[in-house]
């Protein structure tokens, strides 16, 4: 006696037939067109007034390599500072204390609301307002001695980054179910400890993709520090073309390195996302 239900006549059994492959003519046409356009652009670049020998010559020049190392160092340090400031500002923003809330909101408003290049120039030229800094009696120093291009770039980029990161962090913390916070409270945790041990670790999962994105943007934003004499790759490329007038060639050299760095960082970000997602999707039973 069969267990399967009986069915009506008139409908054939197609289970032996397979789907045919579609030729997709227009897709091939589109791809061919795009390749033609790209080839034309490549030809224009190759045949134009660009002296590619200069590009080759300076691609691995010592100052260029030093420059890209300085770029990466600054990007990493500024991002670290930005994350610390962002977490602190986000926590302050969600505080029941209106003073803390206002300070955090003011920080975000001010540093997101002014151009980054302006902030960098203000930090570098701080001595115009504060000729000496420090605590009178304890330690003072000339601002120009303390505010080196490195420090000015770090403060300018990091504090600016923090303003943006604080919004990402705040969104991440708000995305954590309120039940988590209540459960932490129920076992006697105070607000800050609950944030640190329970909410933030969970917020990290949501926060990693936008932070990874911001980091890639920051790598390129470091080029603005060239105007305060931080020797990152654009600054050093500029010095070369100031001497030999090969503007486009040297900018291509710098552009190549930026592209290379971002090409490496992008799959790294995906790896990082997947590793954090694994924490939430432990499916094995």
């Amino acid at each position: 006696m069969k267990a399967a239900p009986t069915v009506a006549e008139g409908f054939p059994d197609l289970s032996g037939m397979r789907l045919a492959r579609e030729p997709h003519w227009f897709r091939w046409l589109g791809a061919a067109l795009i390749i033609l356009v790209l080839a034309a652009i490549a030809r224009a670049f190759a045949g134009g007034q660009i002296e590619w020998s200069y590009v080759g010559r300076f691609l691995t020049a010592k100052v260029i390599l030093e420059g890209i190392v300085n770029t990466m160092v600054m990007a990493v340090l500024a991002m670290a500072l930005g994350i610390v400031l962002g977490v602190v500002a986000a926590i302050m923003r969600l505080s029941p204390n209106p003073v803390l809330r206002s300070v955090a909101a003011g920080y975000t408003w001010l540093f997101r609301g002014t151009p980054l290049i302006l902030q960098l120039l203000l930090w570098f030229n701080l001595a115009l307002v504060f000729p000496t800094i420090g605590i009178p009696g304890l330690w003072t120093a000339r601002a120009v001695d303390v505010m080196t291009p490195f420090l000015a770039a770090l403060l300018g980029l990091g504090i600016n980054q923090g303003a943006y990161t604080s919004e990402v962090m705040r969104a991440g913390m708000l995305s954590v179910d309120i039940g988590q916070y209540e459960a932490a409270q129920a076992i006697g945790m105070g607000r800050l400890r609950a944030l640190w041990r329970i909410i933030l670790p969970q917020a990290m999962r949501v926060v990693i993709p936008p932070i990874g994105n911001e980091f890639i943007g920051l790598v390129k934003a470091t080029s603005l520090a060239s105007v305060i004499q931080y020797p990152e790759v654009l600054h050093n490329a500029e010095n070369i073309y100031y001497a030999n007038s090969r503007v486009i060639e040297l900018l291509i050299v710098a552009g190549f390195w930026y592209l290379l760095v971002v090409s490496i960082l992008t799959p790294l970000q995906m790896l990082l996302e997947r590793r954090f997602a694994r924490g939430t999707m432990r499916l094995a039973r």
Binding site: A127, L128, P131, V227, Q229
Partner: peptide
């Protein structure tokens, strides 16, 4: 030698004592 971006920047650095 200390680099500057333009002549105004250089005069600023002179005024600040850099």
């Amino acid at each position: 030698y200390v680099p500057g971006e333009n002549s105004i920047d250089v005069r600023n650095q002179l005024k600040q004592g850099r």
